[in-house]
Design a binder for these strands. Structure first.
Lengths: 348, 348
DNA sequence: TTGAAAGCGCTAACAG
DNA sequence: CTGTTAGCGCTTTCAA
């Protein structure tokens, strides 16, 4: 059987071609100082002539870097992840790093396995989006001093690098906007409650109600999971209440789409009969009808920043954990207006 | 400097713990037949006790597989790619393969470089979505007998494995539907004309016109690139024609969204004044307003199938190239109706 | 400034 | 059924 690597040109070939030892070729490859310019030139020429490409496996095995960053995400269906990855890629590419992608499909147990594989030399660092059970492996990572950054999750302790958005603030702002529009019965469909961001948004919602003297009604809160059906089901339940809400705040845009679907099915209008507020501001939010009023989360920027933090840490392992919270902001579109049937467009 | 791999447990440690040679451990690892069940058991126990995890780099370097599949895509912003990757992941995960992701950001030159790196042992196989200049490296891949499959591109020769959709048929069906609705002036915004799928859709469009005795008018065709602004700009141009089209067929959904934007900006209604037809049927298509009538492309299935083909080829290198075209079908929603202002909803 | 030699952790003949 | 022995292609001391 022909070996897959047969016929590949190695540094030995380059060395022979350039008339130097292969150690020297390695030096050139790694941009070491101590190589005579003339020799370097000769090696470089030989490399291009032979079409040499470095073997990352060997390089990494021998003690170098793999130049690979592992990325753990739960799903790729929505543009939520797409935007984050865009930011990650934008920072990774110029730094010559590659991305190894693992999709956990929301199966908690997979995360630990993936992390173990990745840290076994496959990757130099790790980026984890919305981990589901970080407790199971984060401590291992910390002890082994393996570089990683969490995205959209604060982790289990203060000792963990993480990039998050101002979720509490976003939940507060969203709810307050609805209150100022005149709503008093505001429903909320939460995200997965095992996620800090979902809990924070809920807390922000409660705080805004409290600050405006509106008693918290547990009936108005439906537990969701960030997926569209949850938005749909939660809204159906909310609308069936004896005293249904006049506005619904979903913990993310995708669930808000589900809410819209449910509202229409009940032959109610948006926003005339029920206002809808989302969270994330994914591209689709501006394209649904009516365009969704939502809280913008700087997803691409979160990806970029997390990557920069990781790269920084890779360069200088002495750098300690850093925790950054990026601001969220209200994007007013047309899915919210003051309560009361048949009113005109929301003025503000 | 502490080596990253220091303290890692290797097969040597496992061998010592189990009281066997490390070759035996390797055998157990690779599920070779010739190991006494009792010994195997002892090794397995030692592995779990020590928390052993295989080092893929070493395994791969020594002649095994890397268990990694490389994936080349141009962008991650839309769910077009997200859906394809979902299909890929669904097939890859059970087969214990990982995915190494490369985003080319539409820069043609990057593709060759990535392919060179990937084939240098980093990956066992390659999946390429919508390549931009496959000519530059496909021949190299073929000669070196490196396994790969193209997705949504027919490649440069018949000798190349590829999964595509029935683009010509889709273009024909879309146009014919519009014609049967009564449209005679049908605009088309093409995809990148360096892509076979874009050319096929255009050809399907032309063929449908011809078959129904409608002369082809080059003025009605705007060259696009599959991105939203192209749909917007193309539509503006089309609408400014002395005799503007009553229907616009965009070569993908994202450009159709751009078309909708432009139509609204001209204070025209969809579909009363202008009908809009897309291509792809990404999830957003059913959520825009009005819901987009489009041609469905089985993206997730394309990802799955391509992956299955690749895995098959990995198992048996003797398998020759296979080319599969998956059917496309018309999804009727509400963005198209017979021409003539103020008509009622499209009946069909 | 350069070279020789020793592995990194594993797979794969080849013996026994 | 199990062990011995070579490497895979590279980085890294240690010498020269």
């Amino acid at each position: 059987m022909t070996k897959k690597t047969s016929g590949n040109v190695t540094i030995v070939d380059v060395a022979r071609e350039a008339g130097v030892s292969y150690t020297t070729v390695s030096r050139v490859l790694n941009n070491k100082e101590n190589v005579k310019p003339e020799t370097r030139e000769r090696v470089l020429t030989a490399m291009t002539r032979l079409g040499y490409v470095v073997d990352q496996r060997a390089r990494s095995l021998a003690g170098g870097h793999s130049q690979v960053i592992g990325l753990l995400v739960h799903d790729l269906g929505t543009s939520y992840i797409g935007l984050i990855i865009r930011g990650i890629e934008a920072e990774l590419a110029p730094a010559q790093y590659d991305l190894l992608l693992y999709t956990t499909h929301r199966r908690k147990t997979k995360e630990s396995v993936y992390v173990a594989t990745l840290t076994r030399g496959l990757a130099d660092g790790l980026l984890i989006v919305l981990p589901r059970n970080p407790g199971a492996y984060l401590e291992t990572l910390r002890v082994s001093n393996f570089p990683y950054v969490l995205i959209d999750h604060r982790g289990v302790s203060e000792e963990i690098s993480a990039v998050t958005a101002a979720n509490w603030q976003g939940g507060y702002t969203a709810t307050e906007y609805l209150i100022k529009l005149g709503h008093r019965r505001i429903g909320h469909i939460t995200g997965s409650m095992d996620q800090g961001c979902a809990r924070d948004r809920l807390e922000g919602y409660k705080a805004a109600l409290a600050d405006h003297g509106i008693p918290f009604d547990p009936e108005l809160v439906q537990e969701g999971d960030f997926f569209q059906p949850a938005g749909y089901n939660g809204t159906r339940a909310l609308l069936n209440l004896p005293d249904p809400p006049t506005a619904i705040f979903a913990a993310n845009d995708v669930m808000a789409f589900g809410a819209m679907e449910a509202i229409r099915e009940c032959n109610l209008r948006i926003p005339e009969d029920v206002s809808v507020m989302g969270f994330d501001d994914i591209p689709e939010a501006s394209r649904v009808h009516p365009p969704l009023t939502t809280i913008q989360q700087p997803l691409e920027e979160m990806g970029r920043l997390a990557t920069r933090m990781l790269l920084e840490r890779l360069r200088d392992p002495a750098i300690g954990p850093r925790r950054v919270e990026l601001p969220t902001r209200l994007i007013v579109r047309q899915s919210c207006q003051p309560p009361g049937r048949g009113n005109a467009q929301a003025g503000g």
